[in-house]
Amino acid sequence: MTTIPHTPARPPLLTRPLLLRFVSLVGSSVGFYLPLSVVPLHAERIGGSPGAATGALMFATVAGEFATPRLMARFGDRTVLAAGLVLLGAPALALTALPGMAWILLVSLVRGLGFALTIVAGGALTAALIPDGRRGEGLALVGLASGVPSVVALPLGLYLAEHTGVTAVAVIAGAVPLVTALSVPGLPGGRPAPGARADGMLAGLRTPALARPALVFGASALVAGIVVTFLPLAAGGHSAGLVAAALFLQPLASALARVWAGRRGDRHGSAGLVVPGLVASAAGVLLIAFTGSAAAVVAGVTVFGVGFGLLQNATLALMYSRVTRSGYGAVSALWNLAYDAGLGAGALGFGAVAAGTGYPWAFALTAALLMTALPVALRDGRAAPVPSAGAARPATAA
């Protein structure tokens, strides 16, 4: 008699709680990305600094990421997520209520704090809703749930600003997170161990096996901050439709590359994608430097988008492979820190450089700066992905 091996049934992925979580995930993504390129334009039109607006947003986001784990330990994931959606949405409603750069900076700071609460607390909730055996597939769906709204919202914000005004964009960006916050009470939510995530994040910063990929990814995120803030200004000689198309192609290329990188990384490992992702990112920025050519600008943002997408997936996968499950919180916090710090630093620093060199040379210098991370990427590619006992210890001495 032949015994047929029993194959356990795969746990369901698209459960009601996960689908409900997608509602608030879409809400935070729309609330963040719809005004992301509009606010710098609004700041410039009133005589303010476009880079300062994005810089304030990301500064508050980074600061909030350090504080959020303690808030989660005290109040719970659901409460912090709901508070984040309110802080992200409510200030946007009042963006144009008062004139002056000081008001824009205040609104940006509060919204940045709200965004930090949504991504850290929301990330913890999402991870808990995905079965262990289908984590890769689940994270891909989560990436699409947040990535598709960003692909649409970023250029849509510019289009609406040109045709209906900044106030209309601000109202939509404020209303969407507030409405989707109503879905949060339906989510399950537990309380983490007090201080566990905060300590793990600081330990991750001291762990080379985690810090190296985070550094490389942060360098590419710096460019992303530059593109969303300054591309509408640098390519101002072209039509608004071209700029909107370019801002659509960049996140679209990133989303597609991220999905491909995930499938390829599962089969062959993610380490081999870090260097190509970095080189593609730098090549894309160099193409954008030819701001007088519409073809170069479109090609540049697309190539950069591919490189950025490769690095998004590869660096995060590598970091997860170098810790045990107890270190996942540290990886998530550190990766988001690299993302947001890079986004803000790019928006702040590029404006000062461009003021002295002009946009074409500033983009070329940015491409050269990005390539300074190549030795780190090469060294990290040779590091073995050996799991550690937690986020506080390096996975490898390489």
Rank of each mutant, 00 (worst) to 15 (best):
T315L: 03
P251Q: 06
R70C: 07
L87P: 01
T15I: 06
P12G: 01
Y359S: 08
Y320P: 08
G138F: 05
V275M: 12
W103Y: 01
L81D: 05
T79R: 15
V298Q: 01
A294I: 05
S388I: 02
V323A: 08
G114H: 04
V152F: 01
V169S: 04
T396L: 04
L117P: 12
A56Y: 10
L14G: 08
A373P: 07
A140P: 11
P360C: 03
G200A: 15
L310D: 02
D77C: 12
R134E: 03
A352D: 08
E44Y: 11
P385L: 14
A384E: 15
P155T: 05
G269D: 04
S37C: 07
L36P: 11
A398W: 13
A355P: 00
S239Y: 03
P155I: 00
F230C: 06
A245D: 05
A102K: 06
S321Y: 03
A161F: 00
A97S: 08
S388G: 15
G47M: 05
T118S: 10
R206M: 07
V179M: 02
G204Q: 07
P99G: 06
G272E: 07
G27R: 13
A97E: 05
G76Q: 04
F59M: 08
M72E: 15
G138M: 03
V30F: 01
G165A: 11
G309L: 13
Y359C: 01
R70D: 09
